[in-house]
């Protein structure tokens, strides 16, 4: 049992995180052309119009909640005067709202994908795998929330799951923290790591290129022909000038 726990809550997360980082670097290096949202709005927009924003905005809310719950230690929120019971109510209410919005959006998106022939035809096998894993993570998360946080009166995952989650990033994983957590939390966490593991090989790569830089860049972009990297040419190292360009047009 111990070795299984060690594998599930130490080895497996690290494999997934490594896959996430290395996979993204590999994909960026070798498949920039395939790095896209693969939007299907051109095929169908009537269902997408409400389902996609519901899913994405709901998801952003859920992610923000996870950030607060997992990354910020309970001692910090207590220090600013938020008691665990207050925190529990706030997170259960806000999390449930965001989660329900997201799930309605996801159901809409999956229904759209299945019922619109053009969209279904544009669905790849990795898309389907991704939908299954993502759906599993979301359903498990929602079930956990309803079972434990709403019906069960609240489980303080911040003392167990969150401690374990942070310990992974300290490179000092504390298995004993997660082992004591209810099984729903464990399965949800594991499925989430699986999603992180397959992330770079699916269309989810578009999350990493969320275009926040657009808010600050100038409207019109100019580029020189010569800025195009030629095959086999590596970028000049900082500190060294490009040779032979004085006197010619840049």
């Amino acid at each position: 049992m111990n070795s299984l726990n060690n594998f599930l809550f130490i080895v497996f997360p690290y494999i997934c995180l490594t896959s996430f980082v290395v996979g993204h670097i590999w994909r960026y290096k070798y498949d920039k052309f395939g790095w896209t949202t693969r939007s299907s709005q051109w095929y169908e927009s009537r269902l997408l119009r409400w389902s996609s924003p519901m899913f994405h905005f709901g998801l952003l809310g859920v992610l923000a909640g996870h950030f607060v719950g997992l990354v910020i230690p309970e001692s910090w929120t207590e220090a600013v005067g938020i008691s665990e019971s207050q925190y529990h109510v706030a997170s259960a209410v806000l999390g449930s709202i965001a989660g329900v919005v997201m799930v309605i959006g996801l159901i809409g998106l999956i229904y759209r994908r299945r019922s619109t022939p053009s969209v279904f035809r544009a669905t790849t096998r990795t898309d389907k795998l991704m939908y299954v894993v993502l759906g599993t993570v979301i359903v498990l998360g929602l079930v956990t929330t309803f079972y434990w946080q709403i019906l069960g009166g609240g489980y303080d995952y911040r003392l167990t799951v969150a401690e374990w989650f942070r310990s992974i990033f300290y490179l000092n994983p504390q298995v004993q923290d997660i082992v004591v957590a209810p099984v729903l939390f464990k399965v949800h966490a594991l499925s989430a790591f699986l999603l992180i593991g397959i992330w770079p090989y699916t269309r989810l790569v578009h999350v990493l290129s969320a275009p926040v830089g657009y808010l600050w860049r100038p409207y019109i972009v100019y580029r020189s022909r010569d800025d195009q990297p030629q095959a086999g040419n590596r970028d000049p190292r900082p500190g060294w000038e490009k040779p032979g360009l004085s006197g010619t047009r840049r």
């Binding site: 790095w35 896209t36 939007s39 290129s209 275009p211 830089g213 657009y214 972009v221 100019y222 580029r223």
Partner: peptide
């Protein structure tokens, strides 16, 4: 994404297929 640009030399507007994210 800033993937569309105007070429400095001749003003032709092009889409960088490697930067476009759809």
């Amino acid at each position: 994404s800033g993937a569309i640009y105007k070429r400095e030399e001749d003003g032709i507007v092009l889409v960088d297929q490697d930067s476009c994210r759809g």
